[in-house]
Amino acid sequence: MNLLFDAIAWILDPANWSGAGSIPQRLWEHVSITAVVLVIASAIALPTGALIGHTGRGREPAVRVSGGLRALPTLGVLTLFGIWLGIGLTAPVIALVILAVPPLLAGAYAGFESVDRRTIDAARAVGMRESQIVGKVELPLGLPIVVGGIRSATLQIIATATLAAYIADEGFGRFIFQGLRTRDYAEMLGGSILVIILALVIDGLFAIMQRLVVPAGVRASRTRELRSRPTRSRAVVGQPITEGNQE
C-alpha cells in the first residue's frame, strides 16, 4: 500500500503541476491527440460504415478488414511507424488512426444494419429518397450503436496513446516511461492512475451520451421488449431490399 501512497503523493506534489512536462500539459497532450485521431479516423470510418450498412454491399470485406486490423499488435504498428517517420507526433497519429478505424467501422455498419429492414422498406414505400432514409430513419435509429463504436474506439485511442509515449514525447504515458527509466515507481504508478481516471471519466461521459441518443420512441419500447422481443429477422439484416420482396 505504501507504493500507492507514494503514487498519490506524487500526483498531489505541486512540483508536478507546473512547468514543462507537468500533469496539466500531459493531460492536454493526451486529450488533444485522442481528439485529433478520433476526428480523422471518424472521417474515414463513419461514412464508409454508413454506406456499407445502408447498402449491405462490401460487408464481408469490411468485416474481414476490421477483424484483421484488430489482430494487429498495437505496439508493433507504433514502433514500425516510429522508425519510418522518426520521433514526433506524425508516427503515433497515423498508427493510432489505423488502430481506431476497425471499432468505428464496425460500430457504424452494425448501427445502420441494426435498423429493422421493414421500417426502411416502409420509409421507401411512402416515398423517402435514399438520402432521407439514411438521415431520417437509419441514422437516428442506429445512432446508439454508432456511438457505442465511437466509445470503444476512444478508449482504444486513449490506451494506445499511453503506449505511444514509447515512441513520442506526449501524454500521460511519458510519466510511465520516465519512471521506468529512472526507477521511480511512484511516478509510473501515478501516471498510470491518471490514465485510468481519464479513461474512466471519458467512458462515463460516453455512457451518458449513449443513453441520450436513444430516440424517445425506441426508449418507450424498451420496457415492453423485456416481455416481447421484436421479431426482427437476422436473416434479412444486411440484405437490402433493393428489388422488393418475393413474398
Binding site: L155, I158, A159, T162, L163, G173, I176, M188, L189, G191, S192, I193, V195, I196, A199, L200, D203
Partner: peptide, 10 residues
C-alpha cells in the same frame, strides 16, 4: 476501459 499499460503498472 482501463488502458493495458496502466493496468500492467498498477
Amino acid at each position: 476501459a482501463i488502458p493495458s499499460l496502466a493496468l500492467f503498472v498498477a
